[in-house]
Computed example of a mutant assay.
Amino acid sequence: MRGKPTVYDLQSAKGRRKWLQLHVDSGQEAAAAVEAGIVILSCEPDHSLEPIRAAAPTAFVSAGMPHGLVSSPQEAIREGFKILKRGADAVYCSHSPFFIEAMAREGIPVTGHVGLVPNWATWTNFRAVGRSADEALKVLRKAKDLENAGCACVEVEVVPVELADHITRNTHMITMGMGCGNACDTQYLFSCDVLGTNTGHYPRHAARYADFAALERELQAKRVEALKAFAADVASGSYPEPKHEVHMSAEALEGFLSKADRL
């Protein structure tokens, strides 16, 4: 595909193409993702959004609206447009359909969320959601509510493959699957898990392909080693050497001192 995918492009390819998707934390990660063929990205709406947009101009970027940021539909619309103006192509929102519908009516592409939703986890705990028939129906109902509110995309996180498949086949929304097998329209992971920058818990669905945390520990040790060597050289008088210094000529120094005394 030439250029940046649009909502229309994604929805037109539904059922015919599986997309790779990655949550990234920096412009470097965004650039690497695009070079690797990953053109659907998500990120936080913090200081990293603009660098990510600049580094990945051909990617579809969904930036999150912090949960609890807005308390009225009008605020949701205002904040949604702010996120788009900063470079996002869609606004991730885990708020209720009440807020999502307001943004969607104004043409703001919104990404909703069903299944294991961290911001709503007090109601489910951090576990697979939808394994029983009744709970699966609740997840499906929430997906339908988001669809009716006008969501363009919906993140489907840690639900049974069968449920994710049913939702994907019965909605025009782009389903962004995390921990749902290969049932959704995108295969979605976080860069911190893929690259191994995560130093905490790795969820069951995560796949680690590098150990950047170990590399960072090694890099930090080298930083400390270099700075200790610098400090030791200063203490011993080995630094600075003459080659590190700049001196005035005798004539310039004499002229400076004669005038400095007058100040």
Results as ranks from 00 to 15, higher is better:
120 W>L: 11
37 G>N: 02
6 T>L: 07
185 D>K: 07
138 K>A: 12
181 G>I: 12
12 S>Y: 13
222 K>W: 01
43 C>A: 15
194 V>N: 02
170 N>K: 06
106 E>L: 01
70 V>Q: 02
244 H>P: 10
122 T>F: 13
2 R>G: 13
153 C>I: 11
248 M>S: 11
177 G>K: 09
238 S>L: 13
238 S>P: 00
263 L>F: 10
109 P>C: 07
230 F>W: 13
150 G>P: 03
193 D>N: 00
106 E>I: 02
78 R>F: 14
46 D>V: 00
129 V>K: 06
102 A>V: 11
21 Q>S: 07
182 N>K: 14
251 E>L: 05
229 A>K: 06
203 P>N: 04
220 Q>G: 03
179 G>E: 03
238 S>Q: 11
239 Y>Q: 00
176 M>K: 09
159 V>H: 01
257 L>V: 05
161 V>K: 12
249 S>E: 12
135 E>V: 09
258 S>I: 08
226 A>E: 09
58 T>D: 13
185 D>L: 03
201 H>L: 14
263 L>Y: 07
102 A>K: 02
59 A>C: 09
58 T>G: 04
43 C>W: 09
134 D>H: 09
48 S>I: 03
218 E>D: 12
244 H>Q: 07
73 P>H: 01
211 D>N: 15
191 S>M: 12
19 W>F: 14
182 N>W: 10
41 L>C: 02
127 R>K: 11
140 L>W: 11
74 Q>E: 12
74 Q>C: 06
89 D>K: 05
37 G>M: 06
174 I>A: 02
50 E>Y: 08
169 R>S: 07
83 I>T: 07
100 I>G: 00
150 G>R: 09
9 D>Q: 10
30 A>Q: 06
235 A>R: 15
21 Q>E: 14
65 M>V: 05
169 R>V: 02
33 A>K: 04
238 S>Y: 06
243 K>V: 10
19 W>L: 10
237 G>I: 08
33 A>F: 00
211 D>T: 05
25 D>Y: 15
157 E>M: 09
160 P>E: 04
128 A>W: 10
162 E>V: 08
23 H>V: 15
170 N>H: 15
254 E>R: 11
12 S>A: 15
87 G>I: 03
262 R>C: 09
208 R>A: 13
194 V>F: 14
73 P>E: 00
176 M>H: 01
139 V>T: 05
144 K>H: 13
255 G>H: 04
138 K>W: 08
221 A>K: 04
120 W>R: 12
113 H>L: 04
182 N>A: 08
246 V>T: 14
54 A>T: 12
222 K>T: 14
70 V>H: 00
75 E>A: 08
231 A>P: 01
64 G>L: 15
14 K>D: 00
15 G>H: 10
183 A>E: 06
242 P>N: 09
179 G>L: 03
135 E>L: 04
126 F>T: 11
131 R>D: 01
75 E>I: 08
116 L>S: 02
117 V>M: 00
197 T>R: 06
172 H>E: 14
12 S>K: 15
